[in-house]
């Protein structure tokens, strides 16, 4: 179970990151679109999202592992 969570979380992060990178590689102009009537571009929003998401998912993983998986492991150890 630990393995499944670890790998699926990794894939999720890699998916977001490589989508970001591939857009930069293939369609950079897509990131130049302005959001609403501000000067913030789609690229900046997505970029900041990737950062915030990375922090968020490390929090989720640590929370699940430290509160649930560790208890199961303790039982297995016994």
């Amino acid at each position: 179970m630990n393995k499944i969570i670890a790998f699926s979380f990794s894939l999720l992060v890699l998916f977001f990151y490589f989508s970001f990178i591939l857009i930069i590689g293939f369609k950079p102009e897509l990131f130049g679109i302005l959001v609403g009537d501000s000067y913030i571009t789609v690229g900046i929003v997505i970029g900041l999202f990737v950062i915030v998401f990375s922090i968020f998912i490390t929090f989720v993983y640590t929370f699940i592992s430290n509160n649930y998986l560790d208890k199961i492991k303790d039982q297995l150890n016994k």
């Binding site: 969570i5 990794s10 992060v13 890699l14 990151y17 950062i51 990375s54 490390t58 993983y61």
Partner: peptide, 9 residues
């Protein structure tokens, strides 16, 4: 940055 979640997992 994204190397970090991967290191954790």
């Amino acid at each position: 940055l994204v190397g970090w979640p991967i290191i954790l997992f």
